[in-house]
Amino acid sequence: MSYFNNIVQAISTLIDGMKVTMGYFVRPREYVTLQYPDEVWPVPSRNIGVGELDSYNTIRSKLTVDINDCIGCKACERACPVDCITIDAFRGGPDEDLGTTSNGTKIKLLVTDFTIDMSECMYCDLCVPPCPEDCIVMTPDYQFISNDNLKTDVTPEQRWRDRSLLIYQFSKVSEEERQRRKAEAKAAAAEKAAIMAAKKIAAEKAVAEAAEVNAEPAASASSSGEATETTSLASDSDPQVPSTAPEASNPETKVSYAIPLETIESSAPAEGDSDTPIAEPTESQNSTEDIEEKESENG
C-alpha cells in the first residue's frame, strides 16, 4: 500500500512544486536582479553609524581632497601610516595672492601636487581628523574604474601591474606651472644652501683664526714632528670663498668643513708615506708650505 501512497505523494508534491514555479513565472515581476552598471544600490552618503560613533562611521571607499581648500600644511601626509599621500607645496611670491579657503583662512602655500595613491590607502581615516580645513574626506564612491583614463594601448597583464589608475592627482596649477615652481624652489634652495655654506665657512674661519693665536706651539710642533700631509680644510669650490691652497680644486675637500675635525684623517686620503694626522688644522698658506717643505725634506 505504501507503494501507491508513494506514487500519489510524489505526483502531488511535483504538482505543488510546479504551481510554485509557475506562480513566479506569471507573477508581476519583482526582480531581485540589479542591472549593475546601469543601476546601483543606493549608498548612504555619510553617517551610517548610530549614537556616539555617528560621525566616525562614515562609508570609507575613496579618499578625495578639495584641492581649493587645501592650505598645504601636510598634516594628512604626516598622519598617513602607509604614506599614500604626497604633497608638493611652495611658498608664493611676496606679491602673489593665493586666496582664502572656504573657512576664511588665508592660503600661504601654493599646493602644486596632491597625490593620493589609492592602491596603498588602507582606509584608516587617520588623515581626515588632522585637516584644519576639513578638505580631505572619505567618500562613498566605490567605483574606481572609469573609461575616462582607461589606457587602451596596454595589455591586460600590464594593466594588472599598473597602479596608475588608482593614483589620484590634484593640483591647483598646470603641469608647466608646477615644473616652473619646482625649478624655482630648487634654485632658491640651492642659493640658500650656498649662503648657509658661506656663513658656516666664515664662522669656522673665525674659530680657526681664534684658535691660531692660542695654538701657535701646536702648529710648530706639527711642523717639527714627523712629516704629515693634510688637505686644506678651508678649501671650497664656492667662488665666494677664496681658495687658500692649491688643493682647493680637489672635490673631496668640498664636504670637509662639515665633518668634525677628528675624523678628517679617515675622509682625507693620505698622499704621503705617513698617516699621522696633524693635531691642529692650519689655515694659512705659510703653514701649508711649511708642511710641504718638511715633506720634501723628509723625502
Partner: peptide, 12 residues
Amino acid sequence: VSAFMQVRLGPM
C-alpha cells in the same frame, strides 16, 4: 524561462 521562474532577469 529559468530566470523568470527564479525571479531573475536572465541575459539582458
